[in-house]
Design a protein around this nucleic acid. Structure first.
Lengths: 106, 106
DNA sequence: CCGTAATACATCATATCACGAAGTATATCG
DNA sequence: CGATATACTTCGTGATATGATGTATTACGG
């Protein structure tokens, strides 16, 4: 998929991935894979950005001797998803604008 | 609307604006305004990018003593719109992923 | 007739961002 | 024992939207 098109969806998609259950980096990538592929470096960049924006919180858990960071969505993060749903209406209008054959009356 | 979300739509939207009829900068902005607002600097950046990518051609026309550049979509530009329509299917799936309530079976 | 707004295009600096590459470290499995 | 999977981190790069600023002409209201 077009990279620019992905950009607008990535943040919200990550938030959606942890919406119903706290999750950690590797798991999030696997969960999103069928819909939107992203590399580890991209994901961790996003997670830090979302943490700075208080849209999620982080909690470190020891798992098999390895560090595992669980991400938990905040109210602000849930609000971000709601904003996306609002934006979606505009996007549908834009989609119609792009795909319409010709509504120009000469 | 979210800036990142706009990014993926801008190029294709500009192409759609000249799809049925050649147009020029100022006109394109006015035509897109109800759907997607963009500044002049942004538009001219996009037009140059699309020209470099051979998705449109430019023709200068004298109009009231002023230069006016008309933009014409190429086959490659039309192809870009078709690609967007393909991408749209994936976007719809992502939208479902984001907005679904909970399909996790515990 | 003069100032303001509209038309029309151009350039520059800046901040944001996705991503590949490379690194660290452990567990598992053949 | 070596490869693969898990798990997170850092760095550099290239792409890009936008505000600010500039140039130049036409149209219009008072």
């Amino acid at each position: 998929m077009d990279i620019q098109l992905k950009r607008g969806l990535l943040d919200v998609c990550v938030l959606a991935a942890i919406k119903n259950k706290d999750s950690y980096g590797y798991q999030i990538i696997k969960e999103m894979k069928p819909y939107l592929e992203l590399s580890e470096s991209t994901l961790y960049t996003i997670l830090k950005r979302l943490e700075s924006a208080d849209q999620l919180t982080v909690r470190s858990v020891e798992h098999d001797g390895r560090l595992r960071k669980y991400y938990h969505i905040t109210d602000s993060g849930l609000g971000r998803i709601e904003e996306f749903k609002e934006d979606w209406k505009e996007i549908l209008a834009i989609y119609d604008f792009i795909t319409r054959e010709d509504n120009r009356y000469e």
